[in-house]
Write a protein that binds this DNA or RNA. Structure first.
Length: 429
RNA sequence: GCCGGGGUAGCUCAGCGGGUAGAGCGCCGGGCUGUUAACCCGGUGGUCGGAGGUUCGAGCCCUCCCCCCGGCGCCA
């Protein structure tokens, strides 16, 4: 039995109930104590009347401060004066453990709340976001599970850089340098030779000293890789995945979205097919809007924001210039200046949430690209081997779970999309 | 790393032509027969981010450093 169930009216008027939780708020007026009990399901008002519970119980609750853990028993009643229209009239109860003065009341600043993250996670706001993330993760798994893909477990500790670009966290591995993974992709490419279609959910790490509302040093990476799929095939997978996740959240977490003030009509519009434009078209579109940009440059924040304003649902940008993308992306057959990569950008200014590509499956071309990037082929011997022993056309993508949650929940900063955010100067709690 | 803003009571902030600090909330005490981030009365509370310097005198001016916030680059 939870507070939320009572508020949903699942118990008839007068029904007995026993609730366990924490004191969210408390008001003492006249001979009554109004305790707002919070548990994982909601916040319910409990009325403690001295004449019903006796002096001892009344005294205990009169003393109890916010966030004390409590057990109360009583009967549920419809009550227009109570928030949510229901309350518990307490007949018995006790304080399990008292709380000291709780430092958070609701007007604190960002730094204070981050220092007290372990306590702030009790807030209804963080609880709602945690539930949405749970549903997002569940929906991602659900989509692939139902279609016969395989979940795998790539390593987090790695012996060499994966993409070569982003900054890696270095750790000591029995006296040898090692790095925290920034992507499981290359390992997933190995595993498709065994399972053909795989996915993994792992933490990824980036040591960049980023200072934006869209970056974390540690984030949850959802990555997919499949043999026999080209770029278009993989884009369809992405499209279906995102549509499925959004509709699942709308179905199961509508109350949480509303609590957070999310405009759900923006999410209702997330239906296939998602618009597609090539990198070259995107550059032209930006120029026609007066944004100065050279063909061959990557999109900056301004460019990306300008693009997302044109769409009311997520959209793809495809076929990028080779020089701005990673070495493993497959060269475009019709124009060797381009690679078969794609990004999925979320609307409403949220920007990139997915990056994917068809992978280079030719041994010679991959080796040449590794050398062009100044990487050492020896570090990639096992990755290159995949192209020597029955190479296969294949594609994959990576999705930032926190970015997806941020957009779906309508958050203004990615730090709230994860319970214990890690970024520059923030390692505790 | 760069650009901009900021660090004053437990929290959110005000203070300024340099004259050694204020409010609200919290907390403590009292009051209130149903409260809704209650209300009323009284009380408590500060090495003004750190170190130097200018000055008769510095929260306020100068120098260096530390920390936080927003943005850029990078990306998921």
């Amino acid at each position: 039995m939870g507070a939320g169930e009572v508020l949903e009216g699942r118990l008839p008027e007068g029904n007995p109930a026993r609730l366990r939780g924490w004191i969210h708020r408390k008001f003492v007026v006249g001979g009554k104590i109004f305790v707002r009990l919070r548990d994982s399901t909601g916040v319910l008002q409990c009325v403690i009347d001295r004449s019903r519970v006796g002096d001892e119980v009344y005294g205990a609750f009169e003393e109890a401060k916010r966030e004390s853990s409590i057990v109360v028993e009583g009967t549920v009643h419809r009550e227009p004066r109570a928030p949510g229209g229901w309350e518990l009239r307490v007949t018995r109860g006790h304080v399990v453990w008292p709380s000291e003065d709780f430092p958070i009341r609701g007007k604190e600043g960002v730094e204070f709340l981050l220092d007290n993250r372990h306590l702030w996670l009790r807030s209804t706001r963080m609880r709602d976001i945690l539930k949405i993330k749970h549903t997002v993760l569940g929906a991602l798994r659900e989509y692939y599970l139902e279609r016969g893909w395989w979940e795998v477990t790539p390593p987090i500790l790695t012996g060499s850089a994966v993409e070569g670009g982003a900054t890696l966290f270095k750790v000591d591995y029995f006296g040898e340098p090692a790095y925290l993974s920034q992507s499981a992709q290359l390992y997933l490419e190995v595993l498709i030779y065994s399972l053909e279609r795989v996915w993994a959910i792992t933490p990824s790490f980036r040591a960049e000293k980023s200072r934006t509302r869209r970056h974390l040093s540690e984030y949850t990476h959802f990555e997919v890789e499949a043999a026999w799929m080209n770029m278009e095939d993989m884009m369809r997978v992405v499209e279906e995945t995102v549509e499925h996740v959004v509709s699942r959240v709308l179905e199961d977490r509508r109350r949480e979205l509303e609590n957070l003030g999310r405009d759900t009509s923006a999410l209702e519009r997330v239906k296939r097919p998602f618009p597609r434009l090539t990198y070259t078209e995107a550059v032209e579109r930006l120029r026609s809007k007066g944004v100065a940009m050279e063909w061959g440059e990557d999109f900056g924040a301004d460019e990306e924001a300008a693009l997302t304003r044109d769409f009311d649902r997520p959209f793809f940008v495809t076929l990028f210039p080779k020089q701005i993308k990673a070495f493993y992306m497959k060269e475009y057959e019709q124009d060797p200046r381009l690679v078969k990569g794609f990004d999925l950008l979320a609307p409403e200014g949220y920007g990139e949430i997915v990056g994917g590509s068809e992978r280079e499956d030719s041994y010679e071309k991959l080796l040449a690209r590794i050398r062009e990037e100044g990487l050492d082929p020896k570090d990639y011997y096992w990755y290159l081997d995949l192209r020597r022993y029955g190479s296969v056309p294949h594609s994959g993508y990576g999705l930032g779970v926190e970015r997806l949650v941020m957009w779906i929940a309508g958050l203004d900063h990615i730090r709230d999309a994860t319970p214990f955010p890690r970024f520059r100067e923030r390692l505790r709690p």
